[in-house]
């Protein structure tokens, strides 16, 4: 076992708010340059760029976990991570079924590009991705975990689109696997105490939408290999596994 350097929340050019530079060769080169060994590709309500990143990641020696940042009915953002493409596409199918069928207005929201592993634009996703799916937070956590995935409450230290901002506190019986804190925000002792009391561990991920917002290493997992099972164990701080963050 050893410490792996992770950034488990990165957007691509598919997210309407994602930069044009968020394509496989550039993102992976940036991660490598910073010494990040594992990234998760987590676009809003979609996983259509995951495969391109996984293929390029294998070539460039960066582990890419398939994922998605889903927006629940309560407008809470949840990072969903999986081991395989099949799992993330099965999850995408469910999310698409529950996403209101609205066309993207590029001028207001931004473009939603699917790219190939070299970063060339292939197609544009026409439906608007940046909105809440008609799935409650409980349904999202259960759905992801039933498929064998990991469900993390995204940026809980932000006022909006977050579990604490939108729902006030962590619901007592919500079996989330962990929470994510933002690299640049001040840590709230009250929030950290709340997490400790509940036995919930945190990750720090960049939630990068542009190349230069991918942070230098913030988060480390002491695990055997980078799988959902190992990460789950590390988030439970069991069997010698753990997650360590810079702060």
């Amino acid at each position: 076992m050893r410490e792996w350097i992770l950034d488990l929340h990165i957007h691509t050019i598919l997210s309407p708010c994602g930069g044009d530079d968020m394509v496989p060769p550039l993102v992976l080169a940036r991660a490598k340059e910073l010494g990040i060994e594992v990234i998760a590709v987590t676009d809003h309500n979609s996983a259509e760029n995951v495969q391109a990143f996984m293929i390029k990641g294998r070539e460039m020696g960066v582990v890419v976990l398939p994922g998605m940042e889903v927006q629940t009915k309560e407008d809470v953002h949840m990072v969903c991570l999986f081991d395989t493409l099949e799992q993330v596409f099965a999850w995408q199918e469910i999310v698409y079924q529950h996403l209101p069928d609205l066309k993207n207005k590029k001028g207001s929201f931004g473009e939603q590009w699917v790219v190939n592993c070299e970063g060339n634009k292939v197609t544009e996703v026409e439906r608007l991705l940046l909105m809440g799916a008609d799935l409650s937070i409980d349904e999202v956590v259960k759905g992801v975990q039933d498929l064998g995935g990991l469900c993390i409450a995204a940026h809980i230290d932000r006022k909006v689109f977050s579990l604490l901002g939108n729902l006030g506190f962590i619901p007592v019986d919500l079996p989330i696997d962990g929470v994510e804190l933002t690299p640049h925000l001040p840590r709230s002792q009250a929030q950290l105490n709340q997490l400790r009391e509940r036995g919930i561990h945190h990750l720090v991920s960049s939630d990068a939408h542009w190349l230069d917002s991918i942070y230098p290493p913030q988060c480390f997992a002491f695990i055997e290999e980078c799988t959902i099972k190992e990460l789950k164990t590390a988030l439970l701080k069991k069997d010698g596994r753990y997650i360590r963050t810079i702060r």
């Binding site: 309560e74 937070i137 006022k159 604490l164 901002g165 729902l167």
Partner: peptide
Amino acid sequence: GDLLSYVMAHAKAGDVWLTIQTHQNIVAV
């Protein structure tokens, strides 16, 4: 209000609360 953290900080005792949120946390608030 629909942002529960904001409602927790600003609503008052005795208020009728109008919201679109349906999660069980609304009861606790």
